[in-house]
């Protein structure tokens, strides 16, 4: 089955991103397809490659990047939510005259339409938030 996932909170403060990750991993292990993971609200912060958690702690951002690489997941960060919160890719940084970008590997920035599209294309959409 095709599953879409929405993550509405950032890493570490809330459990939402952890729950979504464990759910995604289990779904993939069971042979389901994750058609898209859409990050919204503070959830966009899951896509910052500048997080440096203590070494004995899970690395939430890296974990998403690795899962994306392994299973060709489409990790989409909402552009409007990302701009508010300072999450940028190269072209966004250039467009807004910022001196750096911070998006993690495997993530891409796109519009809210991608969320609606995920809702239309996937057989189920599961929302994780707080």
């Amino acid at each position: 089955m095709k599953l879409g996932i929405m993550v509405n909170e950032g890493p570490y403060t809330h459990q939402a991103s952890d729950s979504a990750y464990q759910f995604a991993k289990a779904a993939l292990a069971k042979g389901h397809e994750i058609s898209r993971v859409f990050f919204y609200h503070d959830g966009v912060n899951n896509g910052s490659r500048l997080t440096v958690p203590p070494q004995d702690e899970r690395n939430i951002v890296k974990r998403w990047s690795e899962l994306a690489a392994e299973h060709k997941l489409d990790l989409v960060v909402c552009i409007a939510a990302a701009q508010r919160r300072g999450l940028m890719d190269k072209s966004e940084a250039k467009r807004h005259g910022k001196d750096a970008d911070n998006i993690a590997p495997g993530f891409r920035i796109s519009g809210l339409g991608q969320l609606i599209e995920a809702g239309i294309e996937a057989d189920r959409l599961v929302v994780f938030g707080d």
């Binding site: 464990q22 779904a27 189920r124 599961v126 938030g129």
Partner: peptide, 20 residues
């Protein structure tokens, strides 16, 4: 249920509603 059971529940139901 474990996470795999969570996945099964999602599959077995028509839709999922999160009460955030």
């Amino acid at each position: 249920v474990d996470y795999e059971g969570f996945v099964d529940l999602v599959v077995e139901h028509n839709a999922v509603q999160a009460w955030l």
